[in-house]
Design a protein around this nucleic acid. Structure first.
Length: 280
DNA sequence: GACAATGTTACAGT
DNA sequence: CACTGTAACATTGT
């Protein structure tokens, strides 16, 4: 899923469906991805849902929280009597729970929250709310595009780093929430070569990239996220941003701006897509 | 069989 | 110590 727009879409869904509900039981089928003691959350009521970068936090009324990161293939799927008739995406499967459902939270009024994860890279941690910042991922997370990341801070990050611009904006310690899809699309939108050294960007390019990042993330959010891989929302349904990709996965196709054939290279270990003609 | 997949982190090297 | 690049995590699909 899982970049800022996808995780935010899940957060909005969870906020709508599970806030106010009580956790009656927890079934952990794959212990390796789970830490903390589930006994500490049984009987507690869900009060709010937070998102920090690509991480999710479910807060409870007993000073405990459930922190989670779904990495590449995690899914949180909510089910109750009224959502049961909704058809699940094929990305979830026709049945839930299934062999990829590693954790199930049983809520009151016959509702369930299932955690699925094919590759098992994701994690769920039970801990005191005050201890959330002891999780390294949260502690080291940089400012967010729709949070503390002002243009001045962004400019400062870009101009003092000597790495290629694309891996830099995907570095969660520098900026929270941007992943491979939106990094590719933002660089395409601002016509910047992803290999270009961050330090070498002119003020005008930095400004343009800042605006493009906000623009593509907002577009992703308005389309309910990108279900290119395994991502689904909290009801097990797909997003639509995969139909609006500007550069991601468009290698071999014509550039939307100039018609040149789009190229794919590997940069920082990740697939990188760009127009060799109009991204300078 | 080889390779790549929306992410993060441990580790080796400079 | 700081920075950078690569491998690894586990599984599926092409």
């Amino acid at each position: 899923m899982p970049e800022l727009p996808e995780v935010e879409t899940i957060r909005l869904g969870l906020q709508k469906y599970i806030v106010g509900k009580t956790i009656e039981d927890v079934e952990v089928r794959l212990r390796r991805i789970f830490s903390g003691d589930e006994k500490n959350i049984i009987g507690a009521k869900i009060t709010s849902i937070d998102r920090f970068g690509k991480g999710l936090v479910i807060n409870l009324d007993n000073n405990y929280s459930i922190a989670a990161h779904i990495k590449l293939t995690g899914q949180f799927v909510y089910r109750d009597d009224s959502t049961l008739k909704l058809k699940l995406s094929a990305k979830v499967g026709s049945q839930i729970p299934n062999k990829f459902t590693h954790v199930t939270f049983k809520l009151d009024k016959g509702a369930y929250l299932h955690y699925n994860d094919i590759r098992q890279f994701g994690w769920i941690k039970i801990l005191k709310t005050e201890d959330l910042k002891t999780i390294p991922f949260f502690k080291d997370l940089g400012p967010e595009p729709f949070g503390g990341l002002t243009f001045e801070i962004f400019k400062n990050i870009i101009s003092k780093n000597n790495t290629a611009i694309k891996p830099l904006i995907m570095d969660q310690k520098k900026i929270g929430g941007i992943g491979n899809i939106y990094a590719n699309d933002a660089l395409f939108d601002s016509q910047i070569d992803p290999r270009k050294k961050a330090k070498s960007l002119k003020e005008k390019e930095i400004k343009s990239l800042y605006n493009s990042i906000l623009k593509v993330l907002k577009n992703g959010l308005e389309n309910g996220g990108a279900s290119e891989l395994n991502y689904v929302n909290a009801l097990g349904q797909e997003g639509k941003y995969q139909h609006h990709f500007l550069a991601y996965a468009r290698d071999g196709e014509k550039c939307l701006r100039c018609g040149t054939i789009m190229k794919k290279i590997t940069l920082g270990g990740r697939g990188t897509y760009f127009c060799p003609n109009c991204q300078k």
